[in-house]
Amino acid sequence: MNVNFLISLVFLIQFQAFCQKEKGSDPIVFEIKNAGITVEGTISDWEYEISFDPKRLDESSIKGVAYPVSMDTGIKLRDKHLQGRQYFHVDKFPEILITSKKITTKGKGSYMGVFDLTIKEVKKEIEIPFMLTSKGNTKKLIGDFTINRLDYGIGESSIVLGDEVKVKVNINF
């Protein structure tokens, strides 16, 4: 047996053990103001990879991919429109990607992550504060952030629809 092969096998196992893609159980929730009223929607189909060690933050990473085709705002035609060309254009851009670049601690299970968020091929760096707690065998990550939809070419400026979208993520792993 060749050593190289053994090494690669070890790598592979490690990779699978720590970086397996998991399906998000709770949907991603987003909120936007439309005519003064907060509209809530979800993206239920998404996946994440977390490799996290509080003691080795510079080796830790969080990645996620969300599929906007699973969007639900409670009005079907609205969902279809949001998936259309002028908003998420899911036929051309089926994935929303997020990848951590740097994670720092804020103490007591709270962290600040610098992430690259890519929507419709627009990649922007954003900061996301999040909490990571563990109870028995399960860990929980909770994060909130706000983006400007116009930065990513999601729709156009509008007098009724807000620019800012609040996004809430909840991961149990």
Partner: peptide, 11 residues
Amino acid sequence: AEQGCVTCHTP
């Protein structure tokens, strides 16, 4: 507003 009418029938 809640029903999303405003998006198309915008005041």
